[in-house]
Design a protein around this nucleic acid. Structure first.
Lengths: 160, 160
DNA sequence: GCATGATATTTCAACAGTCAAAGCATATTT
DNA sequence: AAATATGCTTTGACTGTTGAAATATCATGC
């Protein structure tokens, strides 16, 4: 087994881990990864608008509407017309939604951060260098990546 | 911006690159990433069975049926009952399917292999070590990853 | 004050991908 | 031959996704 195979396998494990995490969520939280991501965004500030979610997730507003519909049905969030700008709808999280967020399994990102922090300085440095190298190898162009790693956040970049 | 952020961003770029590649395919080849993956598997040997595809992609046979349906409709592949075991159906690729494969944009994997091969020995070693480290960080358990990196291959691992 | 255009959201119709369950045809085992 | 196993497709359902059209509400210019 040469280095290329070893690398490819590792890369695939990484990709797969994000998928796996998605399923953990579905099982334990009762919402799908995408829905969970919506819930996370709403949960950050307690309430937000459809537009914001659409932008953050890089999906269309129509998609957000259907996603929020499902969360409303589950009792995780509520919709309420904004009083300031009545075109807007504030979507806010319910206690049940908060509980779902709180009870969610250790997110991938946290897992990463925790283990990364525990590393020796030299190893951290090596990892950072390697990751950047690999990212550069794979993505040809500009990416407006923010420091957030989520399943469900890795989606459409249209209408940007 | 600390190392954690930098790492997370790089990781996300990597994840995103696989998504992007999916869209390149859709645009230039006229098939979706998943359909393309099916085509790839069939193309490897020129013909194969539904079961094989289902196992390789880790999806149910029902899914494969619907995917192959679409490829048949597109004229990329053909179905033909096996003469040896008439329960089986051999799915084989057509010239059009071959052309689609041949004309596809540089796959992620090739891109990776090419650039990886061009690296200095020490850098390759570092990358391999880092990738394995990261993979271990993220995936808690056993993964039967084969040395194949594809969008669309990173899917359900049930019924294994 | 009100017409015009911009903005925020939802509704609708349509896909792709996915699966479980059921059905069908064919092999294999007993 | 009967029972069981295997390979595949059909059916019905659900999530995620979008573009286009509909609705409601600002915001501006005149």
């Amino acid at each position: 087994m040469d280095r290329i195979d070893t690398s490819l396998i590792a890369l695939r494990r990484i990709l797969r881990a994000t998928e796996m995490f998605g399923r953990e969520i579905t099982q334990s939280a009762g919402v799908t990864p995408v829905q969970f991501r919506v819930l996370q965004i709403i949960g950050e500030t307690g309430q937000t608008t459809a537009k914001t979610i659409a932008q953050r997730m890089r999906v269309s507003q129509a998609t957000v509407t259907s996603l929020v519909d499902k969360l409303v049905r589950e009792g995780m969030v509520l919709r309420e017309k904004s009083t300031l700008d009545r075109r807007q709808t504030n979507i806010h999280i319910t206690p049940k939604g908060k509980k779902t967020l709180a009870d969610a399994p250790d997110p991938l990102q946290q897992r990463f951060v925790r283990k990364f922090s525990a590393m020796e300085d030299w190893e951290q440095a090596m990892l950072v260098a390697s990751l950047e190298r690999i990212a550069a190898m794979l993505d040809a162009e500009d990416i407006d990546a923010s420091p957030v790693l989520d399943t469900g956040d890795i989606k459409r970049a249209s209408e940007t």
